[in-house]
Design a protein around this nucleic acid. Structure first.
Lengths: 238, 238
DNA sequence: CAGTGGTCTAGACCACGGT
DNA sequence: CCGTGGTCTAGACCACTGC
């Protein structure tokens, strides 16, 4: 009975999500009722509800008892505060990713903002940086650190315009599950980063430190981001 | 059979949550298994799982198939990016709230960052501001706007050291359900805010624009925040 | 009132981790 | 191998919205 290992609630979620972002449902529209979705897709209500839970959790719909599931306005900022990488909002067309420093082995930085396990320390880390551009303008500089554990040939892979998360899933069957982040406002720290982001020395930027959970036990991805938010706010739901 | 209108999954969630923040379970500990929790509390597994979904969603636990529910390290920043007000992290002892501008009616600002419905425009808005201090130092300046719809005697209420959300629930039976936010880094905008946050003119601060959903249909709370993050990062999960 | 989402039960089978 | 969480079924009753 297994339809290819992807759970049914996930499939329904993807379908509805695509319909929303493609504009088939518009802001304020009602989704079909839960019972209708059950009949349409041959599922039971708990399964359908799980799909809707996901959509509501990510801000695509809002549910009202007695009324239905209302489609939410799509956000206008960069959806980096949620999961699924940066790509959620804005529309992929405008988003570009360039690798600045290609993946390579390096020691962990001395001032690393997260505490590391002994395993992680011993393994050393893969280090690489990427620049995200919106409409050709640099917006986010992303410095990534990945423990060098069981990732054969990782450094040979091309990260341009591909989601790091997709590579991890396809090549190593590692699913990203969420994470935690610390956010600050700072003045652009060093001349190198100012040059990369094309900003002046005293420009305020967002500074994010993230630890990203994966489906592999005790395997985390670390990321430090500098964001020029003068033209694009970051967007999140809570 | 109704135990006072609070759902059972919510009660179990609150219980487990309290046990975690009180230190009864510590970082890395395993929670009782789902089946054990069923027996302990006389619930079925879907109900227990809903409690654990909530805990996982808010970052208190992380679940691993085949292993169990692992208690997560408690965050060190200010948990303002999630729900439940600002109070989640840091420990209540250090957090203080002062009302700067008491609630009063005022017109909506001209440059309001969210689009307002006709209903909201006509109703006018309650406006007030609060300052959040950590260890006696100002950290967050919160400017709130609430549509003046069916909120009798709101301006008479004292907001000091009480959660706005608690007042809404207790006095008006309005539950806060989530929301969306736009985040930027800016230089402290005007002398008034610099004075209130006790910072210099060119200090970078976090700027948050939030629209908060409630259980009342088409009733939103709006909030603009300025955060001095030089000593305390904001913390969030995703 | 009918229809909606919110809560809950009592089972089932599967994939995965640790032993 | 056993116990864990992940998925799913087929029902039930309730609270709320709109008419």
């Amino acid at each position: 009975m297994s339809p290819g290992n992807i759970p049914q609630y996930r499939q329904l979620y993807e379908t509805l999500r695509r319909h929303i972002v493609d504009g088939l449902y518009r802001e304020g529209d009602l989704l079909p009722s839960e019972n209708e979705l059950c009949k349409l897709h041959g599922l039971t209500r708990p399964t359908v509800r799980k799909s809707l839970d996901l959509l509501a959790h990510e801000g695509f719909i809002k549910r009202h008892q007695g009324l239905g599931s209302v489609v939410h306005k799509l956000p206008k900022g960069i959806g980096i505060l949620s999961i699924s990488g940066t790509t959620t909002a804005i529309g992929k067309e405008n988003l570009e990713t360039r690798t600045i420093i290609r993946p390579g082995l390096s020691p962990w930085p001395d001032d690393f903002p997260f505490s590391l396990s002994d395993n992680e320390r011993e393994a050393g880390c893969m280090h690489f940086t990427r620049l995200r551009l919106v409409n050709g303008k640099p917006v986010i500089y992303d410095i990534s650190y990945i423990p060098n554990i069981n990732l054969p040939r990782f450094s040979a892979r091309n990260l341009n315009n591909k989601s790091l998360f997709n590579i991890l899933r396809a090549a190593y069957r590692i699913e990203v599950k969420g994470g935690e982040q610390y956010i600050k406002a700072i003045n652009a720290p060093d001349p190198e980063i100012c040059r990369i982001l094309d900003i002046k020395h005293d420009t305020p930027v967002l500074h994010l430190q993230r630890r990203i959970d994966t489906s592999r036990l005790n395997f985390y991805i670390y990321s430090i981001l500098y964001c020029n938010t003068s033209d694009h706010s970051l967007y999140g739901i809570f």
